[in-house]
Design a protein around this nucleic acid. Structure first.
Lengths: 311, 311
DNA sequence: AAAATTACTTGACTCGGGTCAACGATTGAC
DNA sequence: GTCAATCGTTGACCCGAGTCAAGTAATTTT
C-alpha cells in the first residue's frame, strides 16, 4: 500500500487492487482444490484414528518436546496432553522426563509408532499418486510445473518486508550470520565476518536495515549505510536459499532504494564479487552501472562495483 | 492400469506408477496450500456463525429445496433441518411449503440473508485479494496461469472413462442429447437427430459406447459401430463444454480405438464437418488421413471423412 | 380406501475439538 | 531458602458436526 508518490523504474509490489476477475479465479481454485484434494487427503490419513492424532503422529516424527508440538500445531496444553496419552495407550508413542529439565517430557515414537507413521505416509503417497495416475507423462510434468510455480508465487506473496527495522534484533542477527556463513562457504578463501557493518551504521539516520519475513520467520535482509557526500552504500543483501528465485531480491532492492532516497542519498553504490552471479544479474536488471571503484569502498572480497542514481 | 500389450501411437493415460519425486511434490503443494489458503479462508468466511451455516448460506443462494441442499452438501436430513431453523431464527432465511407438493418446503434468502451473504462474499474476496496484493502484475498473471493450468489438469485426472457401457442408460442418453443439441446450434441448418445411431448398433458385439465421468457426472462420450467388412465407424465423440481443452478427446479416442480393435475391426472410419475444427485437429493429430468417402457413410451433415488402420 | 412412500422434524444420542481453571512437580531468580 | 514462573496433567465444561430412529404430514401406489 505504498502511495505511488515517487514512481520507481522497478516493479512495484502493489499496483492497485487486484481485478475482480483475478480474485474470482483464486477463489475458484481454492474451492476446487480444497474440496477435491485437501479434505480427501485428510480422510485418507486417518486410519480409524481421529484426524488430530494422525497429524500429531506426523509431527512427533521430527519434534521432541510438547512445547514444540504445541507451537507447531497451535494446540492447547491440555488437549495435547490428552492426545499424547491416547497415542501412548496405543503404544505408538513413548514419553519420558527430560533429564536436563525434569518438568519437561521428551516424546518419541515407538517402533510401532514408526510403522504406523510409515503406513500413514504410504496412504498419503497413494492418494497423491492416484491424482497423477490419470495423466500422461507430459500432463504430469505440466501439472507439477504449475503447482511448483503457484507455490513459489504464493510463498512470495506471503512475504512481508519491514523497513526500516532495528539491526540488533535476533532476527536481524540471524540473517546477517546466515549471510556471513554462506559467503564463507562460497568464497574460495572464506569470508572475513569482521567487515560486516555495525548496527550503529545501519540505524537511522546513518543508515537503515530491511528485513523480509514469511510465516516461519526471517527469509532475507538488506542494508544501506552512508558513504557521506550524498552517497549511500548497499550492503548485505541476502535471501534465504529456500526463498530464492521468487523475485524477492528485486523487492528488497526497491525498498532499500526508497529508504536510501528517504535518507537523503542521491546515488546508491555497492560492491560485490564475480562469483555472485545472481546478485550481479539483479543489479544490472535494476539499472545499475558498473564503476571502477568508489570512496569508502572497503570490502576486501568485493571486486566489482556498481552504482545507480536515485530519483 | 491397462497392460501395454498393444502399444498405441497415442499417449497412454497411465505410463506406470508416478515417480516418488512427483508424488512428494503433489503432497508438498497440498500441505502448503491447505495450510496457507484453505483453512484460513474458512475462518474468514464465518462471521461468528458456525462454518456449516456459513456454507449453507452460500448454497441457498442458488438452491431452493432441502433435497437439493442435502445432495450438494452431503448433509443428514435432521442436521440440515436444524441448521435451517437456526438460520431462520436469525431471519436470514425464509421457508414456506411448496404449493406443488406441500410436504416440501421452499427455501429462500431474506433481504437480510442476502446482505449477510454479500458480506461473506466480500470477506472471501478480500482474503483472495490479500494473497494477490504482494505480487506485481506480472507475477499475478503467472500465478493465475499456474492455478488455471493446475486446476484443468486436476480436473482431467479426476475423469474416469468407462468402456464399454450400455448406451441406453440415462447418463449415456444425456450425453447423446447434449451432443445433438450442440450440433443443432452449431450447424447452419440445424441437426437432424434422427441420424443418431441406435442403442442396438452401439452394444456389443455390433459396437460399443464409451462414457467419461467426473465427480459431478458425465462429461463426454463416444461410440463405435460396425460398417461390416472389418471396418468400424467412430460416431458421436463429444466432450462437455466445461471439460474441453483438457486432452480428454485424445483419451476417449484412444479408448475407442482399443475397443474397435477388440471388436475385430482392422480400420476405423469417421465423418465430420468442416465447422468442427477442434475435432478435425484431434483426428489429424492422432494419425487419421482424409478419405473421400466410405461405404456405409450416411451422415448428411458430414462432409469430411477420415480413416485410420488399427494395429 | 388402505398401504406404502416421501419430505421433513424432533429427540436422544456420540465424538472430536477446543477452552478454562486448578493443581502437582520442578526450576530459576532474588 | 523462598517465591514466582514454567511444564505438564486433570476435571469440568461448551460447541458444532454428525448419526439414528421415531414421528407427522402429505402424496403416490395399488
Amino acid at each position: 500500500m505504498q502511495p505511488s508518490v515517487r514512481p520507481s523504474p522497478l516493479e512495484q509490489p502493489t499496483p492497485g487492487q487486484p481485478a475482480q476477475h483475478d480474485v474470482a479465479a483464486v477463489r475458484r481454485f481454492n474451492r476446487y482444490f480444497t474440496r477435491r484434494v485437501g479434505v480427501l487427503s485428510d480422510r485418507y490419513l486417518e486410519r480409524n484414528r481421529p484426524l488430530g492424532q494422525a497429524r500429531l503422529l506426523f509431527e512427533i516424527a521430527t519434534a521432541t518436546t510438547q512445547r514444540e508440538l504445541r507451537e507447531r500445531l497451535g494446540l492447547d496444553a491440555g488437549q495435547l496432553s490428552r492426545m499424547l496419552t491416547a497415542l501412548e495407550s496405543q503404544s505408538l508413542v513413548r514419553t519420558r522426563p527430560d533429564p536436563a529439565d525434569r518438568r519437561r517430557r521428551l516424546i518419541e515414537l515407538t517402533a510401532r509408532g514408526r510403522r504406523e507413521l510409515a503406513e500413514q505416509n504410504r496412504r498419503a503417497d497413494a492418494f497423491a499418486a492416484g491424482i497423477l495416475n490419470g495423466l500422461t507423462g507430459d500432463q504430469r510434468s505440466r501439472l507439477l510445473d504449475s503447482l511448483g510455480t503457484a507455490e513459489r508465487l504464493l510463498r512470495l506473496a506471503a512475504i512481508t518486508v519491514e523497513s526500516p527495522v532495528d539491526p540488533a534484533t535476533a532476527e536481524a542477527r540471524w540473517c546477517l550470520d546466515s549471510y556471513a556463513a554462506e559467503l564463507d562457504e562460497r568464497f574460495p578463501g572464506g569470508f572475513d565476518s569482521s567487515i560486516l557493518v555495525t548496527a550503529e551504521q545501519l540505524s537511522p539516520p546513518a543508515g537503515a536495515f530491511v528485513l523480509a519475513r514469511d510465516d516461519n520467520g526471517p527469509v532475507g535482509c538488506g542494508a544501506v549505510r552512508s558513504l557521506g557526500d550524498g552517497a549511500g552504500e548497499l550492503r548485505h543483501l541476502w535471501i534465504a536459499p529456500h526463498a530464492r528465485g521468487l523475485g524477492l531480491g528485486r523487492r528488497l532492492l526497491a525498498d532499500l532504494e526508497r529508504l536510501a532516497a528517504d535518507l537523503g542519498h542521491r546515488v546508491l553504490r555497492l560492491s560485490t564479487h564475480p562469483t555472485l552471479t545472481e546478485a550481479i544479474a539483479l543489479y544490472r536488471g535494476a539499472g545499475y552501472r558498473a564503476v571502477a571503484d568508489y570512496p569508502g569502498f572497503e570490502d576486501p572480497h568485493a571486486t566489482l562495483c556498481f552504482e545507480r542514481d536515485l530519483p
